[in-house]
Design a protein around this nucleic acid. Structure first.
Lengths: 149, 149
DNA sequence: GCGAGTTTAATGCACGTGCAACTATTGTAA
DNA sequence: TTACAATAGTTGCACGTGCATTAAACTCGC
């Protein structure tokens, strides 16, 4: 007995997207806007902080941002003094993007705030549940990756 | 002992957003593009299907789409013949948006496909885990809602 | 019933985004 | 070595988005 209607409150993509938008809206408007940053820029900075300097291509993969969009975004981040662009010496097609001292300083201020917002979202969820939630989200992402789809 | 760096694989907003983007990309490009629809349009149609006809304001709340953006999006959906706009007789400021027969037909074709994509994403997650996941996502959304924040 | 304030929707405008096209460089095969 | 394909990054262009503003209709207090 197939349902004709989608029950939104039980439809996983809707539930995921809704939370994603709410998270981005809160942190983006309340916090990042003060720094002249968008959530997309924040994601780029966090990836650089977490994984170190990256080629733009890899940065795009890790942030799910289009290469052309990322190119212009990095230009803006350079202008803000938060990251540095450097042509790779081995392969001059490549561009290495890395945090500057100013970028690292900005992250030192922002990361604790990000954690607070994360904690607000996770209020009422036990440690075990939270771990299960994260595990499920990681699995879902793998299920949707090109090599497994 | 606070961490300086965010461990991305353990940072909930990152995990949520990543899955959301992947879901939207797959379904949007593989399926919706054929119908000339964006994921945002799809969300509007699903809300109308799930909750029935709505005022534009309420539609905006349910889809997390800005009122001005939604106004233009509804115009496009009307042009596609999928929804109908109708001035409310009681309050002429309001606009009632509802699915047309063509819109309902499109949803009948799309919903089964959407369920398949949902199933792909949830592969390897047990029924109990999936229920817990959805409960957690609903709670997270409530935690981030204006009245609880 | 009148006027201030609120709500709903639409529009002007600037901007970020994604796709396609292009340049430059590197890899590969004859 | 040379020719062809693949990769990295940038840019032109059209378009969707969000913010601020405007217009219209409604609510509430007096």
């Amino acid at each position: 007995m197939r349902q004709r209607r989608l029950n939104l409150d039980d439809y996983l993509p809707y539930l995921v997207n809704r939370v994603g938008v709410a998270l981005a809206l809160h942190f983006g408007k309340d916090v990042l806007a003060r720094y002249g940053l968008s959530i997309e820029m924040w994601r780029v900075l966090v990836v650089l902080s977490s994984n170190g300097g990256q080629r733009q291509v890899d940065l795009g993969g890790l942030t799910s941002i289009d290469a052309s969009t990322l190119s212009r975004m990095v230009t803006r981040l350079v202008r803000l003094g938060l990251v540095a662009r450097r042509r790779s010496t081995a392969d001059t097609r490549e561009v290495e993007v890395a945090l500057t001292a100013k970028g690292r300083a900005a992250l030192r201020r922002l990361i604790p705030i990000a954690r607070r917002y994360e904690a607000i979202a996770a209020t009422g969820i036990s440690g075990a549940e939270l771990a299960a939630l994260k595990r499920a989200l990681r699995l879902m992402y793998r299920n949707l990756s090109p090599q497994s789809g």
